[in-house]
Structures are given as C-alpha cells and as structure tokens.
Amino acid sequence: MSERRVTSRDVAQRAGVSQSTVSYVLNHTPGQSISAATQARVLQAAEELGYTLSAAARALRSGSTGVVVGVLADAPLGPVVVQVLEAFGQVLESQGYSVVFQRRRGRSLDEMLRALAPVALAQFAAFAPDELGAARQRGIPVVGVSVDGTGGNVVRIPQERVGEIQAAHLLDRGHTRLGYAASAHPLAVVLMRGRLAGVRSLCAARGLPAPVVVDVPLYPDAATRAVRRLRDREEPVTAAVAYDDEVALALLAGAHGAGVRVPEDLAVVGVDDVPLARLALPPITTVRVHTGDTGTGLARHLLRLLQPELGLPEPDDEPSIDLVTRAST
C-alpha cells in the first residue's frame, strides 16, 4: 500500500494554525499580515512533514507554481459554502496541489491572475462567463459552480429544482396558499431568483395562486411583522417556503412573536440542512444539497483538465438533492 500524501491539512495540524494560513505562508500570498513567528512555525512543520520539498519538486517538474486559486464572490460564507470549499481543497491537495481561496473584492480576473500566477482557476460565482477571457488567453483551465446552468466544466446547482422540491412538499400536504420568505440580504438575489422561480412554476402548474413574497429580516420584531403579513390576509398563508434555513429560523421566531403555531397554523420548509435547523423548536424540514458532491465534482473536473493522462471519468454535473422532513411541516 502506498504511503498517504502529506497535505496542507497535516501541516496546519502540526503547526496549530488554519489551512488558509498554511496556504498563505507556503505560497507567499501578498497582502497577508501573518507574524514572523507563525510563518516560522508553518515552515518548520512543513519541513518536518516533507510538504515543502514535495511541493517544490512538483513546481520544478511542471514549470509552474502548482497553486490552484479559488475565487469567491463578495458574499457571506455560510456553512454550506465552507463544506464545498473543504471538499474541493481536499481532493486537489491529495494530488499535490496547493489551494488558495481569495475574495474577488472588485478586482478584475486579469489582476488576480498576474498577482497569483495559478496553474488553474476555480470560480465560485465570482465572475460572469464573459469575464473569463483573461484566463483563456493565458491557457489557464477554469472550472466553476453554476447556479443558472450555463458554462462548461461546471457543477450545476439547479436552484429552480430546489424551490420545486420545497413547494412540492408543502402542496402534497394539502396547502394551497403558499408564502415565500425571502432573504433581506442584497447578495442573496442570485440564488433566490432561481428558487422563487421554481416555487412559482410549480404553483402555476397545479393551478394555484402565486406565492405571497415577503422579506424576512433576521430580527425578531421584523420577522414577526413578516409573519403577520403572511397570515393577516383574506386567504391566510398556511405554509411558507424559506430562502434558506437561516430565514426559516427567523420565521419560527416571528411566528412565536405573532402567536402563530408551527406547523399547525404555518408550515415552514428551508434549504441547506444547517446544524441549527435540527435544534430548532420545532426542528425544520429542509432541502439538503450534498455539498461533498459539489466540491469533489468540481475538483475532478479540474484534475481532468490538468492531468488528462490520468483518464479520470467525467464527474456528475449536479450534486444530489433531497428533502429532510422534520416537525416544522
């Protein structure tokens, strides 16, 4: 049996720092304020484990840095996104690549490529397809996560399907007047557009009214007002599709403040299956997108481009998506 390859996770554990810190130190990433003592600790751990020598040898053989850059959109990183990034990094690091994640922060792709000189790029909804010309001109392979189904070498997360699964669960339980609890965060619009379209299309297909859409801020008083807008109608909303589990939690708080029972008066279904959804009162029914599939599939797309000699099979273009039924519905 071959010996397991040392990864940056091993170095991070030995040095007592995060994987991001290891990547910043070993890849000499500019703009980081890492103390000399921490850098020394990382370099010592990498030397003891043989990680630096392995990475250096790979760079000499390939004539490149061996660094894969993942560019993140300027949006909040929830637990689901973090799981995708972890799965993506683990696969690539097992093949000897170093993975560095960077926020876009308004920078052009050309600027980022010149500064980081990667062998490949993974973009997580940070750039539109027409912005990727700078990478193509340099011959840098690009993969990405797509929420609208466009592009090649991407893992697609069909947001309309997510919304359809949420709505179908509620309609199959006999609800005929749905609400849509939208995120008040301005950066949620890309995902929310697809999810809401899925809910609307299923309601239309079943001859039911379009969902009542309300913003649900993550504050108890504001969430209570949102729940009252759903309920204080000629035809009260009896079930709400939430943008994600965080908004679903806000709905539970708002329902409590408005004296509305969940699920007797208002059923609630979220998205993401975050740990807090299981601990809520009542526990939240949710749609789970298998994030390991997303990160692993994206990394395999990239390895097929970087190392075609491996003959890797083409990965699935979509992750598994399923419903987790709990007491909120």
Rank of each mutant, 00 (worst) to 15 (best):
M1G: 12
S2R: 00
E3K: 15
S8D: 03
V11Y: 03
V11D: 00
R14G: 02
G16W: 02
H28M: 08
T29V: 09
T29W: 00
P30I: 07
Q32R: 14
I34W: 07
A37G: 11
R41D: 08
L43N: 02
E47N: 15
A57Q: 11
R58I: 10
R61K: 11
S64I: 12
V68K: 01
A73G: 13
P76M: 14
V80K: 10
Q83N: 01
L85A: 13
Q90S: 14
Q90E: 15
V91M: 01
S98L: 04
V99Q: 02
R104G: 09
E111M: 06
E111Q: 12
M112F: 03
A115F: 00
V119M: 05
A120S: 13
F124Y: 15
F127K: 07
G133T: 13
R136Q: 14
R138I: 10
V142N: 12
V154Y: 07
R156G: 02
Q159F: 03
E160R: 15
L170S: 06
L171N: 06
D172K: 10
G174R: 00
H175G: 01
T176L: 05
H185K: 02
V190C: 00
L196Q: 14
G198C: 02
R200F: 00
A205R: 08
V212L: 15
V212T: 13
V214T: 00
D221N: 11
Y243H: 15
D244W: 03
V247I: 14
L249F: 14
A250G: 00
L251F: 13
L252G: 03
A253R: 15
G259C: 07
P263E: 04
L276S: 05
A277G: 08
A277D: 03
A277E: 01
T285M: 15
G292L: 03
D293M: 09
A299S: 14
P308S: 04
L312F: 06
D322M: 08
L323T: 01
T325S: 12
